[in-house]
Design a protein around this nucleic acid. Structure first.
Lengths: 152, 152
DNA sequence: GTCGGACCTCAAGTGCACTTGAGGTCAAGG
DNA sequence: CCTTGACCTCAAGTGCACTTGAGGTCCGAC
């Protein structure tokens, strides 16, 4: 039971609540980088629990995998991230979060004056202009609240 | 140019900023119900501009088509909805919106104490429990912030 | 040593919200 | 009357975030 043993994918799944298949998918997406044991099975660092947790939270907040990958790019690849590393991420993340909350609140405040009144015939309503920008972004489901998905 | 002429799908697209194909899709989904002219082309009421606008805003807020359909179910099907109809919807909608904002704010407040500290090893962190509920909901992309998709 | 469960890969399927394409019909201006 | 562009239907494709399945390997307990 040396510290170098690492956690199996099943243990990771049990501890995070993620499906095993989801964790493998996240590996494909570059969000975690387990090593392999002699038999070819994945072994995870304890710190990877945090990485996956971060992924889960960010997902819940509406960030795409690409965005999350970008957000986590600042974490050290091969060593367990320190408390300071996570704090740095947290600051950037919090800013995005604040922006999202502000956008929602703003929308809510305009909604009262907008949906109830006659301006929903649009042309003049400030609510739609941001939507137009999103509409120009091609196929697939749109990203929420106008945040551009992080490229590549 | 009698009032009974109605708007073509192209006009609707131009006025809402939606793609023509998206409007047809929304019809398939039951979000608008245009009638057909002699030649089989769709004709829309002016009030449908509002319906589509509502769809666009709700989409931006992260509601699924099914949820939006449920939300709009209270609107009169065959007559142009009155200001009172829209206000009713708006109230319900605003409540969902408030809940979403509250969830985000709450999450943000916990994030500071959570991501920066050691608790992201989870097991005890209040952030994950809601996520577990979402994980039980089967295939496909998860809905944001724990709102259940409207059934049917 | 053998058995079952956990693990592996790779390909294909799923759900949502659309878009694109093929192959045609309709309507308004010249 | 004829053309051109807007419109029609229906089937298939797309991107994201996964899951499911087939077919096989590994490992820990008995």
């Amino acid at each position: 039971m040396a510290a170098s043993e690492g956690l199996s994918i099943g243990e990771m799944a049990a501890r995070t609540g993620l499906a095993v298949s989801a964790i493998r998918y996240y590996e494909d997406e570059g969000l975690v980088r387990p090593w392999r044991n002699a038999g070819g099975q994945r072994r995870f660092q304890r710190a990877d629990l945090r990485r996956l947790s971060f992924v889960m939270i960010a997902q819940k907040l509406g960030f795409s995998i690409a965005e999350i990958r970008a957000e986590m790019a600042d974490l050290p690849r091969h060593r367990a991230p320190s408390k300071a590393d996570w704090s740095r991420i947290s600051v950037a993340f919090r800013a995005r979060l604040e922006a999202r909350i502000a956008a929602l609140t703003d929308l809510r405040d305009r909604l009262d004056g907008c949906i109830g009144c006659g301006c929903l015939s649009l042309e003049a309503c400030a609510l739609y202009n941001p939507a137009d920008a999103a509409a120009a972004r091609g196929t697939g489901p749109r990203y929420l609240l106008g945040d551009a998905p992080a490229a590549k």
